[in-house]
Design a protein around this nucleic acid. Structure first.
Length: 422
RNA sequence: GUGGCCGUAGCUCAGGGGUAGAGCACUGGAUUGUGGCUCCGGGAGUCGCGGGUUCAAAUCCCGUCGGUCACCCCA
């Protein structure tokens, strides 16, 4: 394993790409703040059993994708493969439910899954997500979906589709699973190997199969929406009606299942259609997990959450414009390094983003660097300027320049830059 | 995890047994203290890595690592 190569499926983000990331992050935080969420930060490692018990023993994530290791104290730990389990753990550990009836948390950070990497799918990938504890919905469910869609719109991601489904709860699920297995069993011989296995371990997932034969069988399978009990039905209808009231386009997708065991009732996915996405076109996934908090040892508390894959969003979001990193670039004649340094300090202390090439070199080469830096203004210091206690200020877009007194220069420039950007 | 395709300069790529190339990028210059356009010059590559075949391998063979596509799955 080369030490000069990032671990497979894990990536560096270099400064030139950071503005796009910042745009997403900034918009995410701005959006969730508008909806009343507070930020939560949890560790990237948790005790392995937390994930096994929340995500589910028979899921792909737990079965084959976790980065699990034994630390020096002999504890078995896992790099978090998703954010909900940690959020629930923190919610319980700090007894948050006892202090407030409804809790709205948002988070942004790296997640880890050992899968075969591909475009839009990495072993360390970034998710921005949110959780709501204590609100049974369905209005919050609709609000959350609407929040995600409007955020994507603001990012310039237009071509998206919202898929929703309900997995019901308790009785509904039991009755449906029975009907589903009864339907699938006669077709068992025609199912793919994976689906045959899932028929035993997690029959719902058979609906999720992309294999052509499986799809045909799944298409004719009984639909969970036809099995919803009265309360589940009312919940789902309430979700749909609220989405319509909010003007959020959506499509009911009865075979939408998703790979985590903890979901109940509302389930949704936002898929993109940009050619950049390839087969990994799920931009966001989420749903309701009303049983999870209790299953992990807390009081019965409804839960709802989603996560957006940032790398995928990056593939489909609009280019946007990026502001140059510098306001001014100082250019000086050899021998005037001290003057250049003190001018730079004054500019920076005055709140301007200023730089220079302190290696010196010809004015020509310094100006070339000034140009490449994207700075708005070039400041020139030569013997003439020093003698007159002045600085020559050149507009690097137009080219016109004037010599201004050094005294009062910094606030003057700050004002000029502020005026021109406004 | 299975199968296909691809790895040559920082980037995009040509070269498919006989001395490693182009464009862009980087860098120096085109007379005195001025960038962008143009012109001239310069630096830069263990041809992903390891093994094999051969007088000779970037080129052929095997393995391996990485990327990518499909499957699988998901964000």
């Amino acid at each position: 394993m080369s030490i000069l190569r990032a671990v497979k499926g894990m990536n560096d983000v270099l400064p030139e790409d950071i503005p796009r990331w910042r745009r997403i992050e900034g918009l995410f935080w701005d959006t969730v703040a508008r909806y009343g969420y507070g930020e939560v930060r949890t560790p990237v490692v948790e005790p392995t059993p937390l994930f096994v018990r929340s995500i589910g023993e028979a899921t792909d994530i737990v079965e084959k994708e976790m980065y699990t290791f034994v630390d020096k104290g002999n504890d078995t730990l896992t790099l978090r493969p998703e954010g909900t389990a940690s959020a629930v753990r923190a919610y319980l550990e700090h007894s948050v439910g006892g202090r407030e009836p409804v809790t709205k948390w948002a988070y942004l950070g790296p997640m880890f899954r050992r899968e075969r990497p591909a475009r839009g799918r990495y072993r360390q990938f970034w998710q921005a997500g949110a959780e709501v504890f204590g609100d049974p919905g369905p209005y919050t469910d609709a609000e959350m979906i609407d929040m995600i869609v409007s955020m994507m719109r603001r990012l310039g991601v237009a071509d998206v589709e919202v898929l929703v489904n309900s997995l019901g709860s308790g009785d509904t699920r039991a009755r449906y699973l029975e009907a589903l297995v009864r339907y699938l069993e006669p077709h068992e011989a025609s199912l793919s190997e994976d689906s045959r296995r899932r028929l035993r371990t997690n029959p719902l997932r058979v609906l999720d199969s992309k294999a052509a034969d499986d799809r045909a069988i799944a298409a004719a399978a009984p639909r969970i929406l036809d099995y919803l009990g009265d309360e589940d039905r009312a919940h789902f209808d309430g979700l749909c009606a609220t989405l319509e009231a909010l003007g959020t386009p959506y499509r009911v997708e009865p075979t939408l299942v998703r790979g985590l065991d903890y979901y109940s009732r509302t389930l949704f996915e936002v898929v993109g259609h940009g050619g950049e996405l390839g087969a990994q076109n799920t931009l966001c996934g989420g749903g309701r997990y009303d049983g999870l908090v209790e299953a992990l040892g807390g009081a019965a508390t409804p839960g709802l959450g989603f996560a957006i894959g940032l790398e995928r969003l990056l593939l489909v979001m609009g280019a946007g414009e990026t502001a140059p990193a510098l306001d001014v670039f100082v250019v000086y004649r050899p021998g005037l390094e001290r003057e250049a340094s003190t001018l730079l300090k004054a500019l920076r202390d005055g709140g301007l983003r200023a730089d220079a090439d302190l290696r010196g070199g010809s004015l020509k080469s310094q100006f070339r660097r000034a140009d490449k830096s994207g700075a708005r203004l070039g400041l020139v210091i030569g013997p003439d300027e020093v003698e007159r206690a002045a600085v020559t200020v050149k507009d690097l877009r137009g080219g016109e320049q004037e010599t201004l007194p050094r005294d009062g220069l910094v606030p003057r420039l700050a004002e000029r830059l502020a005026r021109e950007t406004a």
